[in-house]
Write a protein that binds this DNA or RNA. Structure first.
Lengths: 206, 206
DNA sequence: GATTCTTCTTGAACATTGTTCATTTTCAGG
DNA sequence: CCTGAAAATGAACAATGTTCAAGAAGAATC
């Protein structure tokens, strides 16, 4: 007996189009920025009417939020791929991977962090939760490195440290500001972690 | 002989209105967010036509950018007001003052950091420079605390440290994310600096 | 004070873009 | 095939940024 619901041809088509719309929207955001994303452009590129975009996503924010959701998912996959043998290396790896990912997908990350909802509608909880979870990925290595520390404190430390790294990277990659050369930024992040780990009483051992 | 150009009645009126438009725009951004700022709302509230707003600021981005410019100016004034007797206290003071200012004017700061220009027009250099200058305000106290350090490195460190603090605060105050209680955020920032100064080999001495 | 010239102001019209919805098309099930 | 439900359509609408010809206000000259 097949537990999985069979996908009718109609659903196939619908899903294919949904996917297509998202790819197009993501491409526009990534290359020209969120502010250049227009319903009509997406509809034309996807070969459908604007109505269909609305059918599928409710409103235009729905498209943006879905792209953002997938961005944080992709980020999480990348961060989870950082080797965990050595907790100290893992901490550096998480920061460097975040830097790489941010550099590769700067506009997508900006869309994730900068998009504001119309009126005062709340930002979807699941996305916020996923961001928080991603920022909690330093928890495990920090715990191994600070075995004596209180768990709640380590949780807070994880978020603090990741937020700090986020600040350094997001401002460093802000091409609006006089851009920091990418290689220099990498060094900057590494040195930042050097110092911070030292402050926590940990031997960087690089 | 009066070196200063006399202000004709016409200019007075013009300046008064310009100021008024900015106040109104700032108020809307501060209370309802940048996305709720509409030309017509501003014009009506200022008792003038939309055309006058365009006369004065060129386009709507001009209004936003002027508000942003004044935001970073106000921030700089506040940061420069931090006592400089004790360089270590000054570093804590800069971070705490930034936190206070951010908490008081969250939407204005978001407008400063999140606004993107139409098309690919560049963000005005003077604003970027002012932000950089504000973030360089940790330079002086760091230099006093690390007299042996290379000046270029201290400059970089200043920007790094301030960017890190910015990341912690801007994400911490992100009410979209499960908001960190303000008092806790203050503690979070202080502890972060504790650790980082320790890592730099400095006695926090609080 | 009248005249002229310059500048500013106005707001209707236009352009762009998000949103809706009555109509048409599609198609699975009978 | 027929039929009813679901989806797709795109013209129309709404909200909002932008322009500009015409008029008003003020300065300059006589």
């Amino acid at each position: 007996m097949n537990n999985v619901q069979e996908e009718s041809p109609r659903d196939q088509k619908k899903n294919r189009r949904r996917f297509q719309i998202l790819e197009i929207a993501r491409g526009i955001i990534a290359t020209k920025g969120l502010r250049s994303l227009k319903v009509r452009d997406v509809a034309v590129a996807a070969g459908c009417s604007v109505g269909s975009v609305y059918n599928e996503f409710g409103d235009f924010d729905g498209v943006i939020l879905t792209v953002n959701r997938e961005t944080v998912q992709a980020l999480t996959v990348r961060l989870r791929g950082v080797p965990a043998e050595d907790p100290i290396r893992q901490l550096y790896g998480l920061a460097e991977t975040y830097l790489e990912f941010f550099a590769e997908h700067a506009n997508l990350l900006r869309s994730l962090f900068e998009h504001r909802m119309e009126d005062d509608r709340p930002y979807p909880d699941d996305i916020l939760q996923m961001v928080m979870d991603a920022f909690a990925l330093m928890h495990a290595p920090l715990e191994r490195v600070l075995p004596a520390a209180d768990d709640v404190k380590v949780a807070l430390l994880s978020r603090t440290l990741f937020s700090a790294v986020h600040g350094i990277i997001s401002l460093g990659l802000e091409e609006r500001m006089v851009a920091v050369p990418p290689q220099m930024l990498r060094q900057q992040v590494e040195q930042f972690i050097d110092v911070h780990l030292a402050g926590l009483g940990i031997q960087p051992a690089r």
